[in-house]
């Protein structure tokens, strides 16, 4: 059963009709952890705001939990949980006051759904009398998640919950999401960090308002069309410049300590030729081997299309 369905949904802004979302269609199944992966300005926030009934689409239809996002906005508002990207809670209220406030506004109480937030809440409970403005980034995030969960939503929308958060807190946050998934809550999450994509059940890669690809992270990775090499040598920046002008280079870009490289000719012969060529150009300690592509490779490859 589908929790969220989008059918050719479009959204434009302003008099110039600047396109933010361009006929997006996708479905999210019940209980799924679905990721919208794309850079800032790709249209992620617009999609979230339409699904949470905060914006009206200019074209297409969409349902959340079977309710139409335009007609049945009241039902949707009763049922979903939402954590906006810039959400910063009430800085001058304490942790406890924030949670109580949102629980009451959603017509429930902390006690009623305590089991749902317990795992997360116990981590911030020791500071429950501290004001939200005085919390660390990681703790704010946990509090925000508690507030979004407190009414036991059927679908949870998290708009860039990990942006600007350091890698350690990000990892913790994703572990919390995995545990929530076991409670049968459908989670739709957006992120600009490609490395987080693999933590989702299914993902949509999105850029300039368009969906580039939707699938499970594994399948997306498998669909990478070319053979991918990683290569490094002692002068990395010169190596990049050299490979970019090498005639048989299909694509080459930096990737952590390596360069990721695809060649027009995928034979072993071509590999040897290249190493020889680089040695002639004066590169030392050349290290080259095949590598499994990641989501980021796929995204770059899709963007180049």
């Amino acid at each position: 059963m589908e929790a969220v369905v989008l059918n050719n949904v479009s959204k434009t802004y302003g008099k110039e009709r600047k396109v933010a979302v361009d006929s997006v269609s996708l479905t999210v199944n019940k209980g799924e952890l679905f990721g919208l992966i794309g850079p800032d300005g790709a249209g992620k926030t617009s999609i979230f705001r339409m699904l949470t009934t905060l914006l009206l689409p200019d074209g297409g239809t969409a349902t959340v939990d079977g309710f139409d996002i335009v007609k049945d906005y009241k039902q949707i508002r009763n049922n979903v949980g939402y954590m906006p990207g810039k959400f910063s809670l009430y800085q001058d209220l304490t942790i406890e006051e924030n949670i109580n406030f949102f629980a009451t506004v959603f017509g429930t109480s902390v006690e009623e759904n305590y089991d749902l937030i317990k795992d997360i809440y116990v981590q911030i409970e020791p500071f429950k009398n501290r004001r939200a403005g005085k919390l660390s980034g990681g703790m704010k995030q946990k509090l925000a998640l508690c507030c979004a969960l407190i009414h036991k939503p059927t679908v949870l929308f998290l708009d860039e919950p990990t942006t600007g958060v350091d890698p350690v807190s990000r990892k913790e946050f994703w572990e919390m999401l995995k545990r929530l998934k076991q409670q049968d809550i459908t989670i739709v999450v957006s992120t600009p960090y490609m490395d987080e994509a693999t933590l989702c059940d299914r993902i949509a890669l999105i850029q300039n308002g368009r969906i580039l690809q939707i699938d499970t992270p594994d399948k997306i990775v498998q669909s990478y069309p070319d053979k991918l090499y990683q290569i490094k040598a002692d002068r990395m920046y010169d190596l990049l410049k050299e490979l970019n002008v090498y005639p048989k280079t299909l694509s080459c870009f930096t990737f952590g300590e390596y360069l990721h490289l695809s060649l027009t000719d995928e034979s072993e012969q071509a590999e040897k030729e290249l190493i020889q060529h680089l040695q002639n150009k004066g590169f030392h300690n050349i290290e080259m081997g095949a590598v499994t592509p990641g989501i980021e490779d796929c995204f770059i490859q899709l963007l180049k299309k």
Partner: peptide
């Protein structure tokens, strides 16, 4: 500005 209005709108209140 702080985004809390979004939450309040997406609530039964």
């Amino acid at each position: 500005e702080t985004g809390t209005m979004e939450i309040l709108l997406v609530s039964p209140f």
